[in-house]
Amino acid sequence: MRIFDKLFVYVFLFMAVFTFVSCGSEEEKSEDPVPDLEVVLIKDLAAPNDVIDRETGQVVEERPFVYFNLAKGEVVSEDETWDIAIKGLAIRVNGGTSGEGDAAAAVVSGIFEELMEVPAGTEFAQDNAPNLAIPMGSGNGWYSYNPQSHIVSPIAGRIILVRTHEGKFTKLEILSYYKGAPAEPDAFRDQSATYTFRYVHQPNGSERF
């Protein structure tokens, strides 16, 4: 019996080592050949909304959209190539009724770091005013509005996928709507419509991040 015991131990050890090694090699094989993509963090991008008379609902002073090029990672003018444009709570894409480009977007659910590729079946849409590809309205798109505290919060787990004007893919997560990304914002004191967001842009045209 003792021989069998020993044999069993050897076989077990051999299998354990083999499993370990083979797992390791598989992991190596599956490692993405694409070099690590940079996570771009944009802090405090102010995109104030129009001034609206609360009683009549009329726009008193119109403000411009803030245009953003994701590949460059910077604010551009309306005449340059842009991917998204922000004003107040609205985020437009350069496509459909909002722009002449072919950009499109979709909102998906998940964790930013874990989202390694565009999920199968994701339907990218273009703006069809007043319906935007990134929907407006509390709970519909990227934000939630609390009518008691008047706070706008980016919904955790909502990721915006953008197909840029060049047909490249970007995953984007909005982190805060208030200047300085305060942990507990105050709707009356903190400057709103001031975005902090991060994104990963895949320049090679693949759907993987």
Partner: peptide, 12 residues
């Protein structure tokens, strides 16, 4: 399917 964001680190 339910997420939360750490208000300090902003991680989800």
């Amino acid at each position: 399917e339910v997420f939360k964001r750490d208000s300090e680190t902003l991680r989800t």
